[in-house]
């Protein structure tokens, strides 16, 4: 069997997928095609978008996107077209429905909680007042950097 496969490959002149894709639109339209292409997932690659991938399936799908844009379809309609055929899987950015909200909101929640924790940690220490504050202000405020002050101190020795 392996011999048969090898024979077939060796005998057939190697051939690249002939069609290099349809001609590009101009300016804003092609930008729209590329933008949509970046959001759709290439079915035979590992996580690449159809705009980025050079595979045959990606090229076929980009041609279709170009056609749909030329037909006047909206972005939503084009996305829905691909979802109808490949499922939600085809969208590289999860839509904001149902459980998908988790992936969009949890990072924000974490940031808020973290900010609150830091606020609490920092507020525990009362700001220096009285003598301590005066002492701080009295120091020569060269760069506010104790390292520099220490270097200076050492240089003076």
């Amino acid at each position: 069997m392996t011999a048969l496969v090898l024979a077939l490959f060796v005998s057939a002149t190697p051939h690249a997928p002939q069609q290099a894709g349809s001609a590009l639109h101009d300016g804003a339209r092609e930008a729209r095609v590329q933008g949509l292409g970046k959001l759709l997932r290439c079915p035979m690659c590992q996580g690449l978008s159809i705009a980025d991938s050079g595979s045959s399936a990606a090229r076929a799908q980009m041609d279709r996107v170009r056609e749909l844009v030329a037909e006047g379809k909206t972005d939503d309609e084009i996305r829905a077209y691909f979802v109808a055929r490949y499922g939600e899987w085809a969208l590289l950015e999860p839509s904001a429905h149902g459980m998908n909200w988790l992936v969009w909101l949890l990072p924000v929640v974490l940031l808020l909680v973290g900010a609150l924790v830091i606020g609490w940690l920092v507020r525990r220490a009362p700001p220096p007042h009285g003598d301590e504050a005066a002492a701080l202000r009295a120091k020569p405020p060269l760069s506010g950097d104790p390292y520099l002050d220490a270097v200076r101190a050492e240089l003076r020795k």
Binding site: Q19, S22, P43, M44, S55, S56, A57, A60, Q61, D63, R64, E67, R85, Y86
Partner: peptide, 14 residues
């Protein structure tokens, strides 16, 4: 032509 029908049918490769 341009594999339009293939994409219509949800083909992912050959």
């Amino acid at each position: 032509p341009q594999s339009r029908m293939a994409v219509d049918y949800g083909v992912t490769g050959v």
